[in-house]
């Protein structure tokens, strides 16, 4: 039988004490501050698009021939009759993105599978740290590596006259995107319930069979999202490709050709463009284009992942 110590009438009644009005006021102040930060963050976040748009809008809705913009390779912003065709730049961005993904996707997904399914916990820890270190390397350092280390290596390996080309940039971008693919891919594989694996084991499957018969189909959305995020990373990279591509505005015909990307163009030319004139504004238009592409890619990846979470919670 439970016993109650103490005398009923002698106990203090904490519930009657309550909170003082000063305390309530202080709380109100803090909650207002929190709300303020919330709203201002929302403001800044939408502001990013607004300010870029603002600088580029006069050209976007004013003098820019959009058809020529997208279809002409004639990029000559500083001549007497300037022309703003970015087809060459688009080809540059596309070529390095495609080739780097061709390297990064198998490597990244393979490593994700290995880390998730095939290795012991201690090795897993070490590998994850190594991949994080890889991800932490700043892009300018990757540019440095491309310029100082990979450049001579490519010249030695392929006999090309210059080692700054699509191949160089693609290798560097692949190394930069792989950590993204590995970490998001590993999350996707981890999200597949263990009960799937156990059921397959009970039916006699080997670990490899589990991977390609059970996990890939189950995690395909997350793996797709991982690849998309890797693509986003590659498209948006600036400083590394500035150093690695050789910066020649042309449509490449071989991996050993030099190219120039959209991002590097902005970085290289904004400093020289006069603030407020057409060249300056067109660079901002390119910025808008990059923003939209990156946003769409990231959004798709995010929605795909939310789609899985929604299904799993249902």
């Amino acid at each position: 039988m439970a016993t109650i110590t103490g005398n009923l009438n002698e106990r203090p009644t904490p519930a009657r004490r309550g909170t003082s009005s000063l305390q309530r006021l202080g709380e109100l102040a803090i909650e207002s501050l929190i709300r303020l930060c919330g709203y201002s963050a929302i403001l800044f976040v939408f502001g990013i698009f607004f300010f870029v748009f603002r600088e580029g809008a006069p050209m976007l809705f004013g003098g820019l021939d959009l058809l020529k913009f997208f279809t002409s390779t004639d990029w000559n912003p500083v001549s007497k009759t300037p022309s703003y065709g970015i087809l060459g730049l688009l080809a540059g961005t596309a070529s390095v993105t495609v080739l780097s993904m061709a390297l990064a996707v198998p490597l990244g997904l393979g490593a994700a599978v290995f880390v998730s399914e095939f290795c012991s916990p201690k090795i897993k820890e070490a590998l994850k740290i190594a991949i994080e270190m890889l991800a932490a390397i700043p892009s300018i350092v990757w540019g440095f590596i491309a310029y100082m280390m990979l450049n001579p290596l490519i010249i030695w390996a392929t006999g090309a006259p210059v080692g700054l080309n699509v191949l160089n940039a693609s290798i560097i971008l692949a190394l930069m995107s792989v950590p993204v693919i590995v970490s998001v891919g590993e999350d996707a594989l981890k999200a597949v319930p263990d009960s799937y694996r156990e059921a397959a084991l009970a039916l006699g499957a080997s670990r490899w069979e589990i991977v390609y018969r059970v996990l890939f189909p189950a995690a395909k959305n997350g793996l797709l999202a991982a690849v998309l995020l890797g693509i986003g990373r590659a498209i948006g990279e600036t400083m590394a490709v500035l150093m690695a591509t050789g910066n020649a505005n042309q449509i490449p015909t071989s991996p050993l050709d030099r190219v120039q990307t959209l991002t590097a163009t902005i970085a290289a030319e904004l400093g020289e463009a006069v603030q407020g004139d057409d060249h300056y504004r067109v660079l901002f238009v390119i910025g808008i284009l990059l923003f939209v592409i990156a946003f769409v890619v990231n959004l798709s990846a995010d929605l795909i992942v939310r789609g899985i979470r929604g299904k799993q919670n249902a």
């Binding site: 892009s139 902005i266 959004l299």
Partner: peptide
């Protein structure tokens, strides 16, 4: 959604934003 996806904006676009918003405006 916007916050999560703005994390993936290319760094050069941040540079453009900085010029437009802070240096100029």
């Amino acid at each position: 959604l916007a916050v999560v996806n703005l994390a993936g904006v290319p760094s050069i676009v941040h540079a453009l934003f900085g010029v437009g918003a802070f240096v100029m405006f």
